[in-house]
Design a binder for these strands. Sequence first.
RNA 1: GCCCCUGUAGCUCAAUGGAUAGAGCAAUGCCCUUCUAAGGCAAAGAUUGAGGUUCGAUUCCUCAUAGGGGCACCA
Length: 545
Amino acid sequence: MIREEIKNLIRTLPSARTLIASQLEKAIKTLYKKEVEIEIDRSAESAFGDYATNIAMVIKKNPQEIADSIKSDILDKIEVKNGFINFFISKNYLQKKVGEILKKKDNYGNLKIGKGKKIDIEFCSANPTGPLHLGHGRGAFWGDTLSNVFEKAGYKVTKEYFINDYGKQISLLGKSIDARYREILGEKVEMKEDFYKGEYVKDIVNKIIKRDKDKYLKLSEEERIKIFTDIGLKQILSEAKKLLERIGVKYDIWFSEKTLYKKGLIKKAIKELEKKGFTYEKEGALWFISTKFGDDKDRVLVKADGEPTYFASDIAYHIDKVSRKYDLMINGWGADHWGYKPRLMAAAKVFGFDQKLKIIVGQFVRLVEKGKEVKMSKRGGTFISLEELINEVGLDVARFFFLAKSIDTHIDFNLDLAKEQSEKNPVFYIQYAHARICSILRKTPGFKFNISDLKLLTHQSELQLIKQLIRFPEIIEDTVRDYQIQRIPQYALDLATSFHQFYRDCQVISENKNLTQTRLSLISATKIILKNTLNLMGISAPEKM
RNA sequence: GCCCCUGUAGCUCAAUGGAUAGAGCAAUGCCCUUCUAAGGCAAAGAUUGAGGUUCGAUUCCUCAUAGGGGCACCA
């Protein structure tokens, strides 16, 4: 009965890890009448097999007893050591997996765990008051890769960008442009401290002057600022869109804050909060009792001047998201939003979507020059734009640089160092493996793989490589669970290493036709996984280097 | 002052509470008459400090310490 089930399982091809886990579960249930959650790890080293579990120590039972009750035809042997149960995957299973990869091609690693659930990932969402800088790049690459991984896992992903095109900072942009405009046209203008002073403001002004000369001087200051705000906003936003497209980040939804006002959604959200009785008035302002839901202070929804706060519009925004019926909403925010998280979660609790909302706050990228921090500031005009970075080091290097680091890491970025190291960036090591494979395949045109020969794959380095290949679905699964996308570049490095070692040990093209054929199959499978891994990160897979 | 994040090799970073803490760069030695040496091999090198929980702690808890961020009727 069980054997029959296993055969079926192999036919539907779950991962080795899943198979072992379900076997263990059954064994433990039979032995101890216990339901437990099994964790299967990759073994720390080959002497401990391929997979291992600590379950015996967790439930304080005899590991040998558990090991003895497991029978699986994907395993060569099961060993008990230091309380761990170690599993050794059979050659036969590994060889078959190569065939599976070749058959499924780019679909290998597509999981069904998402079950077509709808998920919204909002990320980057830079204020449209200046060009995208390094921190935005980090956020963009993070969100993009996370989206790719979720899609691979069978989720239906919507990528979303929230445009803060309303509020104080926007009118400040208009005022900054106006001041620059008048200054360039010869007026003596005071540059206030909170004005945006970056070069990009001058660029916008120069464009305006080139097109319309001094015609705006005739208008009232108020009219002028209104027009300039609009022009500046459009210009900055279109540049951001262009750049994001260039770096391969495509959004499904660009959501404008202004539309929330136009549609009256903010008022509606505030009314509902009032109706639920979670608001009060104090000093002319309307407050939300967020302390009741875990925040450390109550928060203002409507200021004494009658204007809603950004918080109010963010509540309305999320209610809109909820109305679009996502099963999960992920927000990727910058570190300056740490204090903002509890209040939004408080609102989420009131409206009952706190279980569906996941807020990930990433850490800052600091700019360091000659050992000293340079404050990145749009107002001061000191920052490195994302565009500059891409131009200097290239997209692949930039993506790998950011993706390889946990989003919790504070990055100290030194452009000179980055430039110097970009030539030695590990991304090339991975791409090189891909290029090497392509090079071999170019020498053997017309090659077709034959699954029946796969049993010739017996060399240590061949088996080691396959073991890396079959990790791919596990990597997707783990990353969907914990969002730790640095796992992807790490895996890519491991995979490339296994390939380079295989390349050293096993000549692919040789006198032995069958073996050549078989090894071509193996490297073709490797190429598929390498390319897919690079795809997830948005990094190119060159055929030649 | 209060809250959050972080502290790992000379540098930049990994490590669902697991076994001997891994990579890359830098530094040392070796390997191209074989499919791309952007490669491989060898050796060297690290958990901020002090307690605690645990069979087991880089991981969890407490305190100290260093860096970053937040603490607006700004967004």
